[in-house]
Every structure is written in C-alpha cells, then in structure tokens.
Amino acid sequence: MDTPSADGAAALAEYFVGVYEYAYTSGDTAELDRLSSDSCSFCHSAISDINQSHAAGETEEGGGAVVEYADGAEASPSEWYTATLRVKQLASTRRSATGEVVVQDPESKFDLYFAISWVDGWQVDAVDVMEPGSLTPS
C-alpha cells in the first residue's frame, strides 16, 4: 500500500473499507477524512452521516465487512488508479441514544468501484456501490 501501483491501489481500497467500518462503530472519522479527497462525495456523505449519528448519541452494533475479492488497475502510471472490490457486509443495527432501533441492515454483498489518486500518498476520489457481480467475478 506504500507505493503507487495496481496492487497498492487494491490494498488501499481494502484498507479504506476497514477504516469506513471503524469510523461507523467508533465515531472517529479522522483517518477516513485523511484518505478522502475533496471531490469524494461518497466519502464526505459517510463522514457527515457518522458525525450526525454520533452527535445524536446513536450506536452501531454488529456489522463489519469481509473483502471477498480485490483487484487494482493503473489508469495513469504513478498518478491515477482504480480498484474493484466484492464486499460482504455483515448484519448491523443502529440504535438511538435511548436504545431504539433506528436502522437494521441485513447481511448483504456488493461491489465497490474506487477511483484513486496518488499525490504524495493515496487519496480516494470516488466510490461507486453496485450490485454484486456487476464488477467482480460471480
């Protein structure tokens, strides 16, 4: 993950999924924000949701993500990359400060497509969420 390459882009995308999960359960968005470019609407929407949820005293239970497939590609050497992941999202529950269920998500799978750049380190420029098998081998 320390060098600009297709493998590094795939590793960064896997790391990003872990950071995303951590931010939702902990409320700590510092690393998610550091990895997110100014243009990443997916990233900033997630950060906003996490901040609002934790400010309201909501908690996340369960969840977690398992990366089943990861592949990176070089679009422009040492500058632009893509990564494609198949992710299994484990069931989770978001509860209000009083313990009421706010959101309950069942286990699901999806494909993630990342646009990534390297400028003295990795930045996630965009993330698209798609139906499983849209971008990855079934």
Rank of each mutant, 00 (worst) to 15 (best):
S92G: 03
T84M: 08
Q89K: 13
G57M: 11
R95A: 01
M1K: 03
E21T: 14
Y113H: 13
H54Y: 10
D71R: 04
T82G: 12
Q52G: 05
L32H: 09
Y81W: 04
S76K: 12
I50G: 06
A115K: 13
F16N: 15
M1C: 02
V119Q: 15
S138I: 00
M1A: 08
A73W: 07
C40F: 14
A55G: 11
A55L: 05
A115N: 09
E31L: 04
W122R: 01
R86Q: 09
V19Q: 12
C40Y: 09
L112W: 10
D71M: 03
G63V: 00
F42A: 15
A23N: 15
V67T: 13
C40A: 15
D7R: 09
S76A: 14
C40L: 15
Y20M: 09
V129H: 07
Y24K: 13
E60H: 06
T136A: 03
G72K: 09
D38M: 03
E79Q: 12
A115C: 06
Y20R: 13
N51Q: 14
T59D: 10
A11P: 00
G64C: 05
Y24N: 14
F42I: 07
V67W: 06
A9L: 04
V103L: 12
Y69W: 08
A6W: 06
V102C: 07
S96D: 01
Q89V: 11
D28Q: 02
V103M: 10
T29I: 05
G64A: 05
E79G: 06
P137G: 02
I50W: 10
A13C: 06
Q52M: 05
D49F: 08
V67A: 06
P137A: 00
D2L: 11
